[in-house]
């Protein structure tokens, strides 16, 4: 302690000192970081809107097999949503099951190892998943696809003539399911692990088995987290490009519920990747317009998910 600091003037200097400057700088940095997200998002939207605007009403020949933008984009959007939703139908039960196993069944050392391996799955590049799906998983799943067609062919999903290569919506959905598994599992694991001990013990003390305890305490607590994990996975599945491009034998935009045939709907992202390299500038503009459709669609999906989460949280408060 310095003697001079006892003088009143010095003290007031210390009180009004530099700590506020640091505060202001940090406030500015944090604000800039937050704002940059908005800027980036707006930038992408504006880019797509300006460059793609002409694509909404281009020459009719560009929208093959259709003649205008709306059915063309609708067909692509259908393919995108079909593959992504199927992937989530497969992935979510798996993710919830794996996450429950890791948090409530597996012994600690085993659960650490498995959690690490699942995180590793997220680090595999999508092109590798694509090649694996194309060369290994596709042929391996062919008998299953044939079996489904033969025995469950009366269900429209499994009807039609089975693709000889196995590069179907069915295969694409399975590959996508594996790809979104890590993110959905990670979120579920996080929220399951945060279930208040108090509620778990409330169920156990009533004589609940482990599964009953999960149903009474863990799942109700985690509902919004499961939805959030599902939506993050869905976001990834909707935008996945490379794996779908490799795995799916797509024949352009179309609406069909047949999952096992060689005549499959393209997705927006794979359709862009497939056709953007061409010389046709006008087609590129149309593809940018479909990119805008995908952007808005994923935005709406996320928006709807937030709304569901908020509503289910508010219901019991």
């Amino acid at each position: 302690m310095n003697l001079t600091t006892t003088e009143p003037a010095e003290v007031s200097d210390t009180l009004s000192g530099g700590s506020q400057r640091g505060d202001r700088v940090f406030h500015g940095l944090a604000f800039a970081a937050g704002a940059s997200i908005m800027v980036a998002l707006a930038g992408v939207f504006i880019f797509l809107a300006i460059r793609g605007a002409a694509g909404f009403s281009a020459a009719t020949g560009l929208y093959q097999p259709y003649t205008s933008f709306v059915p063309y984009a609708a067909g692509l959007l259908f393919g995108t949503a079909l593959v992504a939703v199927l992937a989530m139908i497969i992935a979510v039960p798996f993710a919830v099951g794996v996450a429950l196993f890791l948090t409530h069944y597996a012994p600690r050392p085993l659960s650490t190892v498995i959690a690490y391996l699942i995180d590793l799955l997220a680090a595999v590049p999508s092109v590798v998943f694509g090649l694996w799906g194309l060369k290994a998983l596709g042929p391996a799943l062919l008998p299953i696809q044939r079996w489904l067609n033969e025995h469950l062919g009366f269900i429209p999903f499994f009807a039609g003539e089975v693709s000889a290569t196995g590069r179907t919506v069915f295969l694409a959905a399975i590959v996508l399911a594996i790809m979104v598994l890590p993110i959905t599992t990670a979120i579920c694991r996080e929220v399951f692990g945060q279930t208040p001990r108090l509620h778990e013990e409330a169920a156990l003390a009533l004589g609940a088995t482990r599964w009953e305890m999960i149903r009474y305490a863990v799942l109700p607590h985690s509902r919004s987290g499961i939805i959030a994990g599902t939506m993050l996975g869905l976001g990834r599945a909707l935008g996945e490009t490379m794996a779908v491009l490799l795995v799916l034998n797509a024949s352009g935009p179309k609406i069909t519920w047949h999952l096992l045939t060689s005549d499959n709907p393209a997705t927006i992202a794979s359709n862009i990747a497939q056709n953007f390299q061409g010389e046709n500038i006008d087609l590129q503009v149309v593809l940018l317009a479909t990119g805008l459709v995908l952007f808005v669609f994923t935005f709406l999906v996320n928006f709807a998910a937030r709304w569901v989460v908020i509503r289910s949280e508010r219901k019991f408060q």
Binding site: P196, H199, E201, A202, A203, P220, H221, R223, F316
Partner: peptide, 13 residues
Amino acid sequence: GMVFQRPNPFPTM
């Protein structure tokens, strides 16, 4: 049966 230190009714019920 058991009653705990902090009341713990099931929040969603």
